[in-house]
Amino acid sequence: MKLTVDQDVCCGAGQCVLLAPEVFDQREQDGIVVLLDETPADALHEVVREAAAVCPAGAISVEEGR
């Protein structure tokens, strides 16, 4: 799995940080998403998919099978 985030689209709702704090964080100055791990371990794949699904802005893209 390969992750990308779009910081221009992100609205800082923090849903991803709530679900997967190992993978996502928020910038100190404006709360916009920071990707901590673009190839998360298998055990995190399900919660990362959910984070992409619940991201209100659609700022998280998941490329499977990488």
């Binding site: 609205c11 800082g12 923090g14 940080v17 709530l18 704090p21 928020q26 910038r27 100190e28 100055q29 404006d30 709360g31 916009i32």
Partner: peptide
Amino acid sequence: HARLRRMVTANFAIK
């Protein structure tokens, strides 16, 4: 909207 919202988003960040 984004320009203004981003001025206060950090105050409501999860941590």
